[in-house]
Amino acid sequence: MISKSLFALVLSGMGLSSALAINKQIESGNLTVALIRAPPVNVPYPPPSSDWYGQMHDINATVDFGVKLIQRAALSGADFVAFPELWFPGYIDADPGPTDFLDNYFDQTITVNDTNWNKLVSAARKHSVWLEFGFAQHIKDNVFMGQALIDSKGDVIQVRQKLRPSGAERNIFSDGTIDQLLVHKTPFGRLGMLECWEHMHPTMTFAMHAQYENIHIAAFPWAPDLDVDSGVTRSEVSLAAARFYAITGSSHVFMPAVGTAAVFAPNGTLVASIQASEDPYETPILYHSINTTSFISSNQTYDTTEYSWAALQQVDRAYPAYIPKIANNSFIQHRQNSITEMRKFGPIV
């Protein structure tokens, strides 16, 4: 883990000028994406380390660090900067019951249009880069696994919430809504984004593939080195999900994650990667460029292929007749977790 003082040294070593504003446009036919892989401030490293040494999440310091990384990426020629899931202020594994650690996490969330949100949007505008970032989003009495897409002018293209938080995440984060599964027309092609295990669920991937993505951001929270056994969260599982998504969607998939980051071509080939064991403070960013001249920018869909409406009807017709077509009590219902209740009683199991 790195302390705030050491983070200051890391940032000062970047050789960045805070007064430098960049006004550039994406080169015709070329897109350079910067995948952030350094950890947020105070978050233990390497994953899946849980040695906090008395530290807690720090949203203000993490946003300032994130802004510096955006600047560094822009100075290195990036057109698009992608952060991991929940990078602001970092991922959380909470113990049962109310704790100071959990209370602090709720205090480190971001509300759209608050000071930290505006810092990130301003950084995209100042450095003329598109920006995707994962954040703990505070809305009224709930916290969501938010994911934002900002264009190079600082305009908000989309703010979505993870449709169905996975595993123990469901004990803290509330569910998003299915209408947020969108692909967007951009100057460099059709782009969409999902978070972590959303890439495992056909209810989420089918709708995205049907909208004909050229580029997909597959944001994962963290990924250790290969062969590090962390159960279903091991890197082999995350990389398999990103690779399979690239193949089934015929899209370029960029996977930012704290530690191991990767890029897959539409045929599933791993074209760029870096493992967690490589120093994240010397190499905090993985860069990869693609040629976009053949991409389709219109509102095209898979009208006649495996992700068409006709294919969806086939799924319905192929559903086994002996299994009831009802949403009974075993179906995972939409869930909203109250921050007020969690402050009193801890994560809601």
Rank of each mutant, 00 (worst) to 15 (best):
F206L: 05
F206C: 03
A207N: 10
H209I: 00
Q211V: 09
E213T: 13
E213K: 11
I215C: 12
A218Q: 05
A219H: 06
F220N: 13
P221A: 14
W222K: 08
P224F: 00
D225F: 07
L226I: 08
L226V: 04
V228C: 10
D229L: 11
S230Q: 01
G231Y: 00
V232I: 13
T233A: 11
T233P: 00
T233L: 11
V237R: 07
V237I: 09
S238N: 09
L239Y: 03
A241N: 10
A241I: 03
A242C: 14
R243N: 12
R243W: 00
F244Y: 08
A246H: 03
I247P: 03
I247A: 04
T248D: 14
T248Q: 15
S250K: 15
S250R: 15
S251Y: 01
S251G: 05
S251E: 11
H252G: 00
H252M: 08
H252V: 04
V253A: 12
V253K: 06
F254R: 12
M255C: 14
M255N: 11
P256I: 02
A257M: 05
V258Y: 05
V258W: 05
G259P: 04
T260W: 02
V263M: 00
V263D: 02
V263H: 06
F264D: 09
F264P: 05
P266Y: 08
N267D: 15
T269I: 04
L270Q: 13
V271L: 08
V271I: 14
A272P: 04
A272Y: 07
S273L: 02
I274A: 06
Q275G: 09
Q275H: 10
Q275R: 14
Q275I: 03
Q275Y: 05
P280A: 11
Y281L: 13
T283I: 03
P284L: 02
P284W: 00
P284V: 01
I285W: 02
I285Y: 06
I285D: 06
L286D: 07
L286N: 04
Y287P: 06
Y287H: 13
H288K: 08
S289K: 15
I290N: 03
T292V: 15
S298L: 06
S298W: 04
N299K: 11
T301M: 13
T301A: 12
Y302M: 09
T304G: 04
T305E: 15
T305S: 15
E306H: 10
E306D: 13
Y307M: 09
W309F: 13
A311K: 09
Q313D: 10
Q313N: 12
Q314C: 07
Q314L: 10
V315S: 06
V315Y: 02
A318F: 12
A318W: 08
A318L: 12
Y319V: 03
Y319N: 09
Y319L: 06
P320H: 05
I323P: 02
I323S: 05
P324S: 10
I326M: 02
N328R: 11
N328P: 02
N329D: 14
N329E: 11
S330M: 03
I332S: 12
Q333R: 15
H334M: 08
R335N: 14
R335T: 15
R335L: 15
Q336A: 09
Q336P: 00
Q336M: 11
Q336W: 00
N337G: 04
N337R: 15
N337L: 09
I339A: 02
I339F: 00
T340M: 03
T340H: 09
T340R: 11
T340F: 02
